[in-house]
Structure formats: C-alpha cells, structure tokens
Design a protein around this nucleic acid. Sequence first.
DNA 1: CAGAAATACGTAAGTGCTAACGTATCTCTG
DNA 2: CAGAGATACGTTAGCACTTACGTATTTCTG
Lengths: 332, 332
Amino acid sequence: MYLATLERLALGSRLKALSDHFYGAVDEVYQVRGARIESRWLPVLRYLWDIGPSSVTEVADAIGQTHSAVSQLSDKLVRAGMLRRRRDPADGRRTVLTLTDQAVSALGELGPIWCAVRRGISVSLGEHVEQLLDAVAACERAVQERPVAEAILAEHSQIMATPVEVVPYSPELREHFYRLNAQWLERYFRIEDIDRVVLTDPEHYILQHGGMIFFARLGEDIIGTCALLQESPGVYELTKMGVDETFRGMGAGKRLLDAAIAEFHRRKGRTLFLESNSRLKPALRMYEKAGFRLQPNIRHDSHYERADVYMIYEKPASAGKTPGAPGRRRRV
Amino acid sequence: MYLATLERLALGSRLKALSDHFYGAVDEVYQVRGARIESRWLPVLRYLWDIGPSSVTEVADAIGQTHSAVSQLSDKLVRAGMLRRRRDPADGRRTVLTLTDQAVSALGELGPIWCAVRRGISVSLGEHVEQLLDAVAACERAVQERPVAEAILAEHSQIMATPVEVVPYSPELREHFYRLNAQWLERYFRIEDIDRVVLTDPEHYILQHGGMIFFARLGEDIIGTCALLQESPGVYELTKMGVDETFRGMGAGKRLLDAAIAEFHRRKGRTLFLESNSRLKPALRMYEKAGFRLQPNIRHDSHYERADVYMIYEKPASAGKTPGAPGRRRRV
DNA sequence: CAGAAATACGTAAGTGCTAACGTATCTCTG
DNA sequence: CAGAGATACGTTAGCACTTACGTATTTCTG
C-alpha cells in the first residue's frame, strides 16, 4: 500500500478509507439481515435511545457533527418513520427529536446484530481493534487539547528560523550515525552484517581509512548523516546517507551531499561513485541532480546485497554554477 | 464524548471525524503558509512525484480510491496547472498523468512544510500517532484478508443459532463473577473495597448468606451474571448484574433478571430491591420494564458510594402477563 | 423593559467521494 | 482475423457532510 509510506502526511486519506470500509461492512450486514436501518443513522438513533428525547444541537454535540447534519438526517429519519420532531414548549427555538414507537421496537430488535458487529469486528481484527480504539480516543483527546494546525505552524516557524548546518564527525555523535542509517535500512531492507560492523565503529572503518563523515544539524537535533569512504587512493564512495524520517524534504540530504562532493574536490579525488537501490526514488533523484549519472550495469564486486543501482559522479562542466538548475528528468 | 461509549459500533463515525480533522488542520497550514495546494491533492501528486507519470487506474489503486475519484481530481489539477493529461501512445485506453514543471517546483518547495506536518503531528499527539499508524496499518491488512461483513454475519448466525441459557453458580465459574462485574465497574466507576471482597469470594458473601448467583451462558462463553443477596429474612437485594460488553443487547440481562425474580418468588420473599446509578440508563430501563419502580429517595444506609438510584420490585397485578408490553417511559 | 447579543435551527450551495453506466480500446479465443 | 470479453476511463447522479446564511426566539444589559 503506497499510502502507508507517506505516514503522517496521508493520515486523513487512510482514516477516511477505513471509516468508509466499516460503514460499508455494517450496512451490508444490516441489509442481509433485513434490519431497516443504515449505519449512518446509528449515532443519532442510539443517542436518543440511550439518553431520551433531545434537541438537535444536543445530539449534534454528542455525536460530533454539525447541527445541519443532524437536522438533515432528521428529515430523512422522519420520512422513514423513525423520528418525531416537535417544538420544545419551554424554548421555542429548540426542536425536540423523539424516537417513534416503531423506532424503539426496531432498535430493541437490533441487539443481536450489534452484538454480532462487536464480536465480528473483534474476530476479524483481533487485538488491533483495541489498539485502534485506544489510539483514536487518545488522538481525539490530544487534538482537542492542542489544535494540530497550531502545532504544525509552530514547528514550521521553528524550522524556517533555523538553518540546517553540516558539521564533521566527532565522537559524541557516533550513536547518531547508527541511528540515522538503521532507520532507512530497517524500513526498506534489513541490516546486513557489513552494515552493523561499519555503523557501530565508523571511526575505524571510515575515518581511519581516510574517509570522512558529515552530520546535518537543525538546532539541537542531529537529523542526517553521510559518509565519504576512500576505497583506494583517489577513489571515493559516497555511502551511509540517511536523513531522519521526520526531517525529510528540507534539504538536509542535499546539504550533506554538497558537503561530501566539496570534500571530494578538495582532496582532488579522481572517482566518486555510489551504490543504491532503485526503490529509493527521492534519493536517486537527488543524486541525479547533484551530478551523479546512472551506470548501465551494477558494480561487479558490490559489497551490498541490496545494491541494484550504480552511479558515478561527473564533474559539472562549469564548476561555479548554482546547482539544481540543469535539465529536469521525469523518471530516474 | 458520547461516541466513545459505542465503541466498535461507531468506529466509522469517529474515524471519519478524525480524518476530517487532519485534512482540515493540514489545509489550514497550507493556506497560512501560502502553499498553492490542498491536502486532498497530496496522495495523487505525491505518487506522481515519487513514482513518475502513471495512468489513472494505477494511481487510483495505489492511493486506494476509485478511478472516478482520480479522474475528477485530475480535472481540477489540470485546471490548477499542476497536471497534464495525455493518451498513452502504447495503449489508447489509458490516460497518463504527468506533473507539470510548475507542480514539480511547487512540490519541491513543500519540503519544510511536510516536515513541519510530520513533526507537528508528532508533537501534538505524542506517541499516540505511532499507535494510530500501527493500528490503522494492521486493520487495513486484516480487513483485506478477511472481510469484516463476512465475519459479522458469521457471528450473527452463530449467535442466532445458540440460545442464551441461565445456569446457577458452580465453583469453576467463580472467576467469571469477578471478571464480568469488574468490567462495568472499571468503566463507569471504580472498584470499591466492598466490591473486591464480595467479588472474589462470592460463595461466602452471597451463597452462605442464603443468596443465589446466576450466570448467562451462550454456547461455551459465560457472558453475564447477577446475584440475589439475602439482606434479612424475606428481604432480597438484586445486585452484581453484569453482562460482557461484547454480548450486550441480546437479552442476556433480561434472562438473568427474570431468573432472579423467579427465584425471589419461589422463596416467597417479601421485598426485592436494588441500588444502581443513574448513568446506567439501559440497565435502569430494563429494571423498569421488569417491574422495578424508582423510589424518591436513595437508601439511607447504602453500602455503595456510587448508588444514586433505589428501586423496589412491585409484583405485577396479573402474574401471567407477557413482560415488556406495559406503557413505555421516555426518560428513566 | 427596549434593544443588542446570543442561541437554535432550517435551507441552500458546495465538496469529495462512490456507484452505475456508456464508450473506446485492447486482448483473447476459436 | 472476427467477435466476445476484458480493461481504462470519463460522465452522471447521488450521498453525507460542511460552510454560509437567514430567521425565529431567548437572554442579557444598561
């Protein structure tokens, strides 16, 4: 499922889809069992059934919809003979909704179906329903306490006010080197032995072989890393590029890449290559933009199982040009 | 929030509400920051951005919507200058959707906002987002493997095929007495000391004082219980009535109540009373129907903190009458 | 107690999606 | 290679909900 990869960005879509699915399933059950009710009616009817006659706004507040929605649904329910509307004698503005006798008896007969719904959902989804219910409840509360939009805007302001800086390796940052790389490795592949060794002791495997490690810092957070590994004199590999998932898209990767390329130039290296995987489209697009070119075949002696892409850096003709401008490519 | 009490029955409504909330929050952010995009566009645009030009159906499948939805959204996006449509030269039926240069650059500038969205949601909802994402993903999978409607119908058939039976206490059922009562106590109140004592040793506190305990059984599941406690000779208290949440609404409570009342009659008791709480509307409605009448004041020496309702059973005038028929009451 | 503000609710218009249908194109089969 | 079936996709109608607005009625305030 593609949407899952977008995570928090597509929460709305996924919740909606799940929501529709549940509505649909329950409606199907009602229909098959001949219950003369629709799943969308349930909150209103059940509220009146549990609490007794109530005004439109009262119901709307309880079930978390607008008074218009309740009002319109009421029309339909009155037509279906489930509801009676009448003016509140004590307050002429209010409309009191009351279940008809027909509705009361219809709801009374629905017990086994509701029971089956609860059980069926539990059986079908197992413990995940509990998780879902808990999580939804927690989110409902959290969302009410602190509006999400506000929180996002605050984050945005902070992000925009703080530049992403690239800093070289220092021992106290070692743990971040593992953390940032483990994140994408675990998500897309699995951690190979060679990874674990290199990631836990980068000083030995990268720095002592004449390599270099960079970190991207945003304020106090270390949000990305990449390494320049010296394979043989003058031949460098760009590797271990990783940006924290929650900080993608703000150019940290590009900064790191630029820093690595600059370092490669400073050392007057001959060849700069990288190995990657075709599933990592955004990363490949970035490499492409920075001047790496896809090679027709993968490297003969690659030390990664997951490598199916081999790219070599080609020094841009005009060195001083601002990067990012040259011809766009649709597919990588 | 009333909906929360409906649990699995109102999942659809709650998910929809949450979904709308997220859409709204993100849209607000886009608008405040002047991004020329809407949150509903994101799945389509992001897919094309990640994967490259694709056909309508391809996109629809990936983002879990119908081709019509994608087609209609495409119209809008073309009008907004974000998308180009063209026939697939290789297959004349297909329409290939391609991002315009404007869209590519617009999306490219959205990085910090997306980052802020991810971070903002995390900050606002804390660890609950993770829970929510995990639960949603798990449910999506489960729902695909086994259709929910099917599972519900299966449960329903089983429920309808199996009658609810009332059985008397036996030692191996003791644990159920605690479990079934703890469930509603924990949900609506808290477990008082007196509860814990009585619930863990019902043989001593109820049976040895001349009381009686009933269980409701559905197939192999013990789904409800209630007790008849002898307070003094001829005076009985109906208490410890509890039905498993996932089995409510199938008449188990009523069966238990009838059994208790029958036992009371068999013993030729003088007085049968109960104490309850006004929050437990469905239960009160059931007591009312069975012949209990609300007393104006609560009991002077109640042993429960939560008791705010005191009801006494009044022997029906005509003993053989079918229950449930007499005059309905709106509010309890 | 008059007039302003708030509240309750219905109606209209708009949105985002689906289901159902129709048409063009492709693919499979004998 | 003709024709049946499948596929891709646009269009229409409909649904559930929202926002915006208008109209009663009530409540507040000086």
